[in-house]
Simulated assay, not measured.
Amino acid sequence: MSYAMSKFGYVTLELDGPAQNQLADTLLEAFPDEDEVNKLLKELDLPVARFAARKLTTTVTSIVDNARGKGWDGNLVLAARATNPGNLRMQRFAAAHFKQPLKIHWGADVEDVDLSHENAEPKLERLVNLRLGIQSIGLLLEQWTRMSQQVCKVEVSLPTGTASGTGFLVGPNAVLTNFHVVEPLLEAKRGAGSVKCRFDYLADTRPLRGTTKPLSSAKAFPIAWAKYSAADAQSSDADSLPGFSELDYALLVLEKRVGDEEILAGGTKRGFVPIRDAPTPDDESALYAADAPIVIVQHPNGRPLSVAMDTQGVIGLNGNGTRLRYRTNTEPGSSGSPCCTMDLRPIALHHAGDPNYDALHKPTFNQGIPLHLIVGDMKERFQEAHALLG
């Protein structure tokens, strides 16, 4: 973190005469030789020659006077504290003059740094990754329990056998998955009766195998959809990009309002994953930025509900924002899974992985469709389907 005025802006403390003298004495203790003082000046992007003098006391006094006169005495204190964080006298001086938390901007993130502790003791712990924060375990358990009840295995009966994908409730009776999961049924001219959604499939033992829920025969199958793109078969964006109508999604309507089922004591309903107001990159760019976390709740290879997470999973959006790429693991059968933040906010629909299947190639990415694009497509082309979203 640089506190140089050209990068951080000017922080002015307006130190009076006694405080200036105290700061000079503190700096001399914290930076007792010329090399250390020069290091501090470089942290502030200031030329060493401007303050050079035969005596170190003269150099430091000149720095303090210039800082006070030109309004960067706050920068000087912050830089000195950061450069020598173990010096208690410097810590205490900063605490005495920064009474309110200081807002520090790290890209799209803002951290309130409190320098006002009475004893100004050095902190032994810090928030190193602001995107992750520290989560309440009680809240996490509640969120994960709800998500486990809302994600399902999509079981597809084909003339040649069975196949599966993943889906999740996005309304009381609406399940979102990928178009390519149900496409073989459409090609075989089979309808909703060939699909079942298995909820609560947590293990292969009988009590935890879950229950299947049929689709409605009275609604279109699927009620909303968009095909995938030929560009999804390319590892690079160099040749072409998916179009904004090539979103590889299908919305399935269940026979009953499964999301309204009471599944826990006290009348707690299953609920659904809210996507109607899915965040956009314009509104919350940090969620789509490189190294942001991604969590994918899925039924890999048709197995019981599983999760893959990578706290620095995001690679970034493709050239036109129609695909979000990430490093988080998936397997066949994971198509249609929700891609979420660490606190399980849904941002994308997983649909595919690195298409280079050369035996010597190490996969470099998986990818999903930003949910805000899917919601927008439904709103424009499938108003009845859009109304089903919770």
Score class of each variant (00 low, 15 high):
residue 286 A to K: 15
residue 214 P to Q: 14
residue 318 N to R: 08
residue 208 L to C: 11
residue 322 T to F: 07
residue 315 I to A: 01
residue 229 S to V: 07
residue 310 D to M: 07
residue 238 A to Q: 05
residue 201 Y to K: 10
residue 297 V to H: 02
residue 295 V to Q: 04
residue 211 T to N: 09
residue 299 H to C: 11
residue 289 A to F: 03
residue 320 N to V: 13
residue 201 Y to L: 08
residue 312 Q to D: 13
residue 223 I to Q: 01
residue 312 Q to F: 09
residue 241 L to S: 00
residue 228 Y to M: 06
residue 240 S to K: 15
residue 279 P to R: 09
residue 208 L to M: 14
residue 245 S to G: 15
residue 243 G to Y: 00
residue 213 K to Y: 15
residue 285 S to N: 14
residue 305 L to I: 12
residue 272 F to W: 15
residue 322 T to G: 10
residue 262 E to R: 13
residue 253 V to S: 13
residue 256 K to C: 11
residue 205 T to Q: 03
residue 213 K to P: 00
residue 295 V to T: 14
residue 269 K to I: 08
residue 201 Y to S: 12
residue 300 P to L: 07
residue 295 V to H: 04
residue 220 A to R: 15
residue 319 G to S: 09
residue 280 T to Q: 05
residue 214 P to K: 10
residue 258 V to Y: 13
residue 309 M to W: 09
residue 246 E to L: 10
residue 265 A to R: 15
residue 230 A to M: 08
residue 266 G to T: 05
residue 227 K to E: 12
residue 306 S to G: 11
residue 303 R to L: 15
residue 206 R to K: 12
residue 204 D to G: 02
residue 225 W to D: 05
residue 239 D to F: 08
residue 324 L to K: 01
residue 259 G to K: 00
residue 220 A to Y: 00
residue 314 V to G: 05
residue 240 S to F: 00
residue 277 D to F: 11
residue 242 P to Y: 06
residue 236 S to Y: 03
residue 251 L to G: 04
residue 252 L to N: 01
residue 224 A to C: 00
residue 283 D to C: 02
residue 271 G to E: 00
residue 278 A to Y: 03
residue 242 P to V: 04
residue 223 I to D: 00
residue 314 V to E: 05
residue 253 V to M: 10
residue 228 Y to R: 07
residue 201 Y to H: 14
residue 265 A to Q: 14
residue 231 A to K: 00
residue 248 D to W: 05
residue 235 S to W: 08
residue 255 E to F: 05
residue 226 A to F: 00
residue 243 G to P: 03
residue 211 T to A: 09
residue 250 A to G: 03
residue 237 D to N: 13
residue 219 K to S: 13
residue 206 R to H: 12
residue 206 R to E: 04
residue 316 G to R: 03
residue 263 I to Q: 02
residue 301 N to M: 13
residue 205 T to H: 07
residue 228 Y to F: 15
residue 211 T to G: 07
